[in-house]
Simulated assay, not measured.
Amino acid sequence: MDVKTGFFYLFSLVLLFAAFRVITARNPVHAVLYLMLAFSQASAVWLLLQAEFLAIVLVLVYLGAVMVLFLFVVMMLDLNMDSLRQGFWKHFPLAALVGVVIALEMAYVLMGGFRELPAAAQVAMTQGGSNTKALGILLYTEYVYPVQIAAVILVVAMIAAIALTLRQRKDTKFIDVGDQVHVKARDRMQVVKLDATRPAPPPPPAEPAPVAPAAAVPEKKA
């Protein structure tokens, strides 16, 4: 067994362990950290398979942005795991069914083998080009329509997320963008001329002190 094969088995074992801990960890923060470890090991496996583009994209997109965002969200939400575990066995049959379907689809793809690369991609690989160039040629020649459809779906999802975030709520203040753009300086501030010095106002007149009523003196009888 050579060094490359040894590293492959090492990264694969760590990847399987991290994936197992993602679904068995009781703390959600620990689960996110194990998921980040799994992504890093998958990136290392892709580097061994000479798929540099996919490895770098996995590190930059998932480890550098998505998983860090997930980690901060999970830490700030302070999730109550007791309430989340109450419906585990209720949804377990559906989750197991989805897992079996995904496993069968992966087995069908892997056992069926992969088709040969198009002629342009094969030329790019044989002439000393990188697999990134071959992947770009493959995406924008044979799979150009699926790439465009996926791009449109992602744009629609982005617009929908922005629309849901910026929806008008009754408990928040809303500013009309048109009014904010067309506002003028004289409408925002009014300059009032005041004298440099002003005489002090006269003191108010002193009020007379109240007079106490005289006490009644009883009359003496003759």
Rank of each mutant, 00 (worst) to 15 (best):
L84M: 10
M189C: 11
L16T: 08
L71V: 00
L16G: 10
L138C: 11
V68E: 11
V192L: 11
D82E: 14
A200Y: 14
L54T: 03
F70E: 01
V98T: 10
M1G: 15
N80P: 03
A163P: 00
D82A: 13
V32H: 00
I137T: 02
Y34H: 10
D82P: 02
G6D: 09
A18W: 00
G178N: 10
A51G: 08
G112D: 01
Q180R: 08
L94W: 14
V192G: 06
V3I: 14
M81K: 03
L164Y: 12
W46R: 06
A120L: 06
I159D: 03
E105K: 06
L139M: 11
R26M: 04
H91L: 09
L104S: 12
N80Q: 06
P203I: 01
R167P: 01
M81P: 01
G87V: 08
A216P: 15
L110E: 08
A18E: 02
Y9G: 06
L104Y: 13
Q122G: 04
A107W: 02
L138K: 04
G128Y: 02
I102M: 15
D82L: 10
V123E: 15
R85I: 04
M189F: 15
L94P: 06
I102Y: 15
L94A: 15
N80C: 04
A214D: 12
A151Q: 06
V191Y: 07
K90L: 13
A42H: 01
P203T: 05
P93F: 00
V109W: 12
A103Q: 02
I149G: 06
K4M: 10
D2K: 01
V68L: 15
L139D: 09
